[in-house]
Design a protein around this nucleic acid. Structure first.
Lengths: 408, 408
DNA sequence: CTGTATTAATTCATTGGTTTAATTTAAAAG
DNA sequence: CTTTTAAATTAAACCAATGAATTAATACAG
């Protein structure tokens, strides 16, 4: 028995129907009203009513006629991608980006900043705020409605701080969301990177539109997963669902800082890769991740062997993920997958096909990102967009004021 | 961005509101209309309208006055537990039960049948059908609205057959649901046992009413989990979410029939326990699970040591579950947990507290079943009840016919 | 070139639900 | 005994989706 959330009233209907139409428009770009009606399961007259309101608000535009079919020509409508925008902030451990997107989640401009190793969290955050402010100003008069922010690792939703940002310090003390909102003067929404990745894959790849369960696995300095079940992110009790980096693939394995043994992250993250390469090659000066990645790409046999073993361990983690969630699709992303994506994919698929329950394996596609190269920023934008679409009256003039003005 | 399922219309409102009220009634038993209105977020007049309809249908009854408060005395209403019922069929590997429940999911009568080892699936199923038919007839004139069925292991929702019933054979060929529906003449709904367990815990323990993420772990001949996220079962692509028995806690562990190595089930299931006890004690005649369990209860030191290790392995699986799902509550159930529940609980909690990310651990309660002893049957009943509540007009006369009759 | 079938979009009265506000009922408090 | 408080009901108001009729534009058959 699924739980019915709460009692509905008529405003819930219209809010839901507005959301449905906007989501369809966001995915499809230009599209006639009939098509929207069919896809939403609504009547054409209802769609006419709702879109008329959107057009009054300036949120949606008629883009001209669409030809090709037999009967009366249809009028294409689409989200207003000229006057509005969304800011996406993507915070990683060694860099951050600020990106302005239009409402169809196409990037208009991205600015990237490296984070030097000796920079404090406060300094970085201050630069980040300035970068965000600047790019918003530079895009005037485009109205940036809200800001979405992708943060690495689990993010505590209780106090709006980053909870466990492994590999960096000082971020725990910064109330990211509140400060940024203050500086920008627009609502700010935060989501952890793996969830952003999952959102980007789910919403931006038409193939996955009706996927029942999609998992995005971010293989970076840690390993995290974002999981979307029937179109909804699974968040769990504290919003920390998907911390698979600290699930164990060997209960007798080496101890991890988290208290567990044999954590997946210790076998297959960019950190682990760098560590293993350094241990194997014993270079005079320790190699960075990029150095190790270059060696791998250049075909160094020792590094290659390490990488393949790493992929097998990742495969073990993925098998557990499949047995636990029964996803239709798993998408591998983040730093480590970008080094040799096809090799990794082949090796992981191979391991999975040998170790997974056949029935589950056959129904699980394992892919690299097939759409947005920059999943985290796209997902951050989608996070903000979802909030906007769900609370339209916070962003667009409620009709009663308009009526008053018309009488003057 | 959460996906809006589809366009809503007014009938969706009323269907949802009916469902909300029935779920509240099911949980709370007798309760006045005002309370329902407050909890559902609806106005009193709406509740009056909807309950009036329920009373016309005979689905709900007024039970008399409730006193105590200051103003006008309120009228208690509750589900009609006299005239209607639900049949729950619970199929395990060595036994099955048929149980008649009332609409508040209290068991009225249960009949249990053992399955001899040499009995074929067809024979068992035939006996099961007869038992179901008989108990329904014996409860006439109570109208049994539908039948819910709990089946062991993952159940393929594609062709309504049991897909992977480990430890037994022959079940794959039986279209359980269709045959049983034919025999009983009422709708039949199937759900796998771990999901039934999760449903029972979620709906029948008031403490868990607003739990964001609840996991029920069935430690029986295999290990399976049922996971409820925001009141909805997570099902995955094939309805096989929660097959954690075949997630690995040691990628170099012993091979499993599923193709993987070091599967959780091989360390901590009732099957594994029996096997380990036999290997350790080398008795002349192999011990059954019940024999092994008796030895454990009697304090046999060898068996006790094996059991504690088993609990540690289960703990490793639970830690992975916590890191993967971030549940608020984990409930341990099924066969193996019933042997020495408190000892198991203590040992698992201990392992978890030593191996889990502190922040997650502190926010996860680990419990044994605190309500229904017979979680699977209760969950089967809840499965059927949910279907009834969601499709009321299939079970109760639509109003237009009544109006015609009244005119005569 | 004309007529017909087809399809898209709009308009407006209707429908069917929730809600507002007023009313009735009844117990407790002063 | 009156007043206050609260539950339940009732009837009118309200509001979003809908159905039916209308307008508009196109392809295609003859």
């Amino acid at each position: 028995m699924d739980r019915a959330a709460q009692g509905f009233n008529q405003s819930d209907i219209v809010n839901n129907n507005r959301l449905v139409l906007l989501q369809l428009l966001c995915r499809q770009g230009v599209c006639p009203r009939v098509k929207l009606a069919r896809q939403a399961g609504l009547k054409q007259s209802t769609v006419t009513n709702i879109t008329a309101e959107f057009i009054r608000w300036g949120l949606v535009q008629e883009t001209g006629f669409l030809t090709g079919s037999k009967g009366r020509r249809s009028i294409g409508i689409s989200l207003n991608n000229d006057d509005f925008g969304i800011l996406a902030v993507c915070l990683a451990r060694t860099w951050f980006t600020v990106t302005v997107f239009n409402l169809s989640v196409s990037p208009l401009e991205q600015r990237r900043f490296e984070i030097p190793g000796d920079q404090s969290a406060e300094e970085t955050f201050s630069l980040l705020c300035t970068a965000a402010e600047t790019i918003v100003k530079d895009h005037a008069p485009r109205r940036i409605l809200a800001c979405g922010m992708s943060v690495p690792g689990p993010y505590s939703f209780i106090n709006n701080r980053i909870a466990l940002m492994t590999g960096t310090t000082g971020w725990d003390a910064i109330p990211l969301r509140n400060v940024l909102r203050e500086r920008l003067g627009i609502p700010v929404f935060t989501e952890q990177d793996a969830n952003c990745g999952a959102l980007a894959q789910y919403w931006l790849n038409p193939d996955f539109y009706s996927t029942l369960l999609l998992a995005y696995v971010a293989v970076g300095q840690g390993v995290g997963a974002g999981i979307i079940d029937s179109g909804r992110l699974i968040r769990g009790g504290l919003g920390m669902t998907g911390e698979i980096g600290h699930s164990s693939i060997n209960f007798e394995g080496p101890p991890c800082t988290c208290g567990n043994r044999g954590c997946l992250e210790n076998y297959c993250s960019s950190t682990a890769f760098t560590r293993m390469v350094n241990e194997a090659l014993q270079p005079a000066v320790p190699l960075s991740f990029n150095d190790a990645a270059s060696l791998l790409r250049s075909g160094n046999e020792t590094v290659m062997a390490l990488f393949l073993t790493l992929c097998d361990r990742l495969g073990a983690g993925i098998v557990n993920l499949i047995n636990t969630f029964n996803p239709n699709v798993i998408i591998l992303g983040d730093e480590l997958t970008h080094v040799m994506p096809d090799l990794m994919l082949r090796q992981v698929r191979e391991y999975v096909s040998l170790h997974c329950i056949p029935e589950l394996k056959e129904n699980t596609r394992i892919e690299k990102s097939l759409v947005a190269k920059d999943s985290f920023a796209h997902g951050a934008a989608l996070t903000a967009l979802g909030e906007i679409f769900s609370h339209l009256t916070d962003y667009f003039a409620p009709p009663e004021e308009e009526e008053k003005e018309e009488r003057l």
